[in-house]
């Protein structure tokens, strides 16, 4: 037995075809030499793909309202973590501090990296 269906089943093959088309866009975008194009093709397309999977395959939008709330709260926790820690990690110096080890690692790594 199963619980009664709580979802309307759309044309899943069509959604899959859209997802594959978006994958092709992101791979083709990665071949570009323009940084902006690469970023949009990679992360913009990833967000759209994730939304399509969550909406159509996971049926998040037809779940009880607190399920998307729960998921959004968890994502908010991750954003808070990022916002709280990133300034110290992404920057290697500040008003009264300097992360010399990180600076040196970047400097050494950039010297060793092949010229693009």
């Amino acid at each position: 037995m199963t619980t009664e269906s709580h979802v309307h089943h759309p044309n899943y093959v069509k959604i899959w075809a859209i997802l594959v088309a978006l994958l092709i866009v992101s791979v083709l975008g990665s071949l570009s030499s323009i940084r902006g194009v690469i970023l949009v093709a990679a992360f913009g397309v990833a967000i759209v793909k994730a939304y399509l999977v969550a909406k159509n395959f996971m049926h998040v939008t037809v779940e009880k309202r607190w399920v998307p709330y729960l998921l959004v709260v968890m994502i908010a926790f991750v954003v808070i973590l990022f916002a709280g820690v990133a300034p110290d990690v992404m920057r290697h110096d500040g008003l009264h501090w300097s992360n010399d080890a990180a600076k040196q690692t970047v400097e050494t790594g950039m010297k060793a990296a092949p010229k693009q």
Partner: peptide
């Protein structure tokens, strides 16, 4: 929901380090 925090935390940590370390591109 718990997996979002596990993977989200790791991805956030990776992202901030990646942005702070341009040499990782190589």
């Amino acid at each position: 929901a718990s997996e979002i925090v596990i993977f989200g935390g790791l991805l956030a940590a990776y992202l901030m380090h990646r942005l702070g370390h341009p040499e990782w591109a190589a």
